[in-house]
Design a protein around this nucleic acid. Structure first.
Lengths: 259, 259
DNA sequence: TGTGGTGCATTGGTCTGACCAGTAATTGGT
DNA sequence: ACCAATTACTGGTCAGACCAATGCACCACA
């Protein structure tokens, strides 16, 4: 062993120490963004750990987005430092398109109930607000020439939010909000495509109009139905966009084989 | 090399494949939150990779917060945290007890769908587990002399969790879990009374039996209906209790585990 | 004088097998 | 019945070997 391994925090294993020490070196400016780190073998020597531990340490930094590694080349300090730390759930949802549809399944359920309650419980003030939000969205969708997708998405969101708030169930509003946030932050790119294609946009606009009419007219069952169809067709559109996915093979796996 | 290594995304190295495959297994419910994963050596065997690569894969999951590892013990699937843990909803609970019924309203919706999906999508393994959980609960409810309410609540919770997991929709499971956690961490200990009064307990037991039968027999609509009635009657019972509970109030009730 | 190929040294990627270090169930003695 | 030692696990670490991609120095040929 080439270097002293001073005890850090009791829970700190070698790979964690490696990550910590390298982070420190980067923060101290010893290794600068864009710069190539020493080779793994050299780092092992300098830090006094085995290559396995060193590599696990680098793996930590890599998954934090702090370094970038290329075989045959080396590891470079990333130029863009990590911005935000997301919830564990977010990581699971990312890169697993299947969960997107699971999410839409739940959202459809909640949106349907939300629309139903909004139609039956909504006050006149609620309806005025819903109508205002609807027109903000619809006017923009029809008049704007080069559509700012993000701006339209905000209007869209505001409209749905107004509907859910008219349900007068804070828990419902909150849960829906959570799922929507999750959806937008994980698959925002896919959603953007929907707004760019003319046919889906027309369909969405029409469904929004129907939803608005049903809610403000107080037709609860119709509102629920429209909302369900709305989410259903969005799901279908996304499914069509989805590049053929290998859902096979893993459904046959059973717990017993793993014990 | 023990297993074929089908090419995934070109950039996917072994550790990334390991992480991806394990994530899928978790999402598929083969490995469930709180459960202990097979040992590293066994996983190496099953996945056909070396222990070094396997450990780097686990390191990825660990840094994502998906698993938790303890030396000498093993790796457990982390309990999925709520989308937003510290939500303003908590404050609402404190001051507005009516939120409890809003919560139950949303829960009924999700439980209903969860039961419906469990009945239609549940595998035979799911049904076996559901039946086991049901009997653990029912046997205890009938045989125990002085009923340990907390213990019964745990069985109750395990039963409902098994049903929701059989829906094979991680988002649904997670959302339901979030709402349940909200209940647990709030001050509504009144549910405890439900288990103490003989009449409500009998009704709950019967509904559980119906729910179990409907789900394992694959009767989706029946399952949904029973679940809805279950939550509905619980809500009603709580509503009745609230009247007399207003007098007692201000007791130092601990938060209880409740389905 | 380019210019394109060819090797080779260096890098990360992976595997193997060994040993260290906690954990928890089992066992055996009191 | 209880408590301590044993033991059979678990993850943590190490060493050294080989594979695969990279990129540069070198050299042959136009």
């Amino acid at each position: 062993m080439a270097a002293e391994n001073q005890a850090l925090s009791p829970g700190q294993r070698r790979p964690d120490q490696v990550a910590t020490r390298l982070e420190r070196l980067i923060l101290d400016g010893v290794f600068r963004p864009g710069q190539l780190l020493p080779s793994e073998r050299r780092l092992c020597d300098r830090l006094g750990v085995s290559r396995a531990s060193l590599r696990e340490g680098l793996r930590i930094l890599r998954s934090k987005g702090i370094i970038d590694t290329r075989q045959g080349h080396g590891s470079t300090v990333a130029t863009l430092l990590p911005v935000n730390q997301q919830s564990p759930l977010m990581h699971l949802f990312k890169d697993h398109p299947r969960t997107l549809f699971d999410l839409l399944e739940v959202r459809a359920l909640l949106e349907g109930e939300s629309a139903r309650l909004a139609a039956s419980r909504g006050t006149s003030a609620d309806r005025v607000l819903i109508t205002r939000r609807y027109h903000e969205m619809a006017d923009y969708a029809e008049t704007a020439e080069p559509i700012d997708v993000e701006r339209l998405a905000r209007f869209d969101h505001a409209f749905h939010l107004a509907v859910s708030q008219a349900s007068h169930n804070p828990v419902l509003v909150h849960t829906l909000q959570s799922l929507t946030d999750l959806l937008l932050s994980s698959v925002f790119a896919s959603v953007k495509h929907l707004y760019h294609l003319p046919v889906p946009r027309a369909m969405i606009n029409q469904q929004h109009a129907q939803l608005h009419d049903a809610v403000v007219s107080g037709d609860a069952e119709q509102a629920k139905q429209v909302a369900l169809e709305h989410l259903s067709s969005i799901s279908q559109l996304l499914r069509d966009l989805e590049v053929e996915h290998d859902r096979l093979e893993r459904s046959s796996m059973r717990l017993e084989e793993w014990q």
